[in-house]
Lab assay of single mutants.
Amino acid sequence: NNDALSPAIRRLLAEHNLDASAIKGTGVGGRLTREDVEKHLAKA
């Protein structure tokens, strides 16, 4: 659900052409954090 993404996370996802649903969020309520996105990028 993109409504739960902060603007910074949306921008980071867009810059790397990532789909938020492909990344498991570890923030409050399962929200994506910058660390989640960076860890996903490091794996790729």
Rank of each mutant, 00 (worst) to 15 (best):
N1S: 14
N2T: 13
D3P: 11
D3I: 08
D3A: 09
D3Y: 02
A4T: 13
A4Y: 15
A4K: 11
L5F: 05
L5M: 11
L5G: 04
L5P: 05
S6L: 07
S6I: 05
S6V: 05
P7W: 05
P7L: 13
P7F: 05
A8H: 11
I9P: 00
I9F: 06
I9Y: 05
R10D: 06
R10N: 05
R10A: 08
R11W: 12
R11Q: 14
R11A: 12
R11N: 12
L12V: 06
L12S: 05
L12A: 06
L13I: 06
L13A: 01
L13R: 00
A14Y: 12
A14N: 09
A14H: 08
H16A: 05
H16N: 07
N17W: 05
N17T: 04
L18V: 09
L18E: 03
L18A: 04
L18P: 00
D19A: 08
D19P: 07
A20V: 11
S21M: 09
S21C: 05
S21D: 09
A22Y: 09
A22P: 02
A22S: 14
K24A: 09
K24D: 06
K24S: 09
G25A: 09
G25V: 04
G25F: 01
T26R: 03
T26A: 03
T26Q: 03
T26W: 02
V28H: 10
V28S: 09
G29W: 04
G30K: 04
G30M: 03
G30L: 01
G30Y: 01
G30N: 06
R31A: 14
R31V: 14
L32R: 02
L32I: 15
L32T: 03
L32D: 00
T33P: 00
T33V: 05
T33Y: 01
T33D: 01
T33C: 03
T33H: 02
T33Q: 04
R34V: 15
R34I: 15
R34F: 14
E35V: 09
D36E: 02
D36I: 01
D36Q: 01
V37K: 00
V37S: 00
V37H: 00
K39L: 13
K39W: 12
K39Y: 12
K39G: 09
L41T: 03
L41S: 02
L41M: 07
A42W: 09
A42V: 10
A42P: 04
A42L: 13
K43S: 11
K43G: 11
K43H: 11
K43W: 12
A44Y: 15
A44P: 10
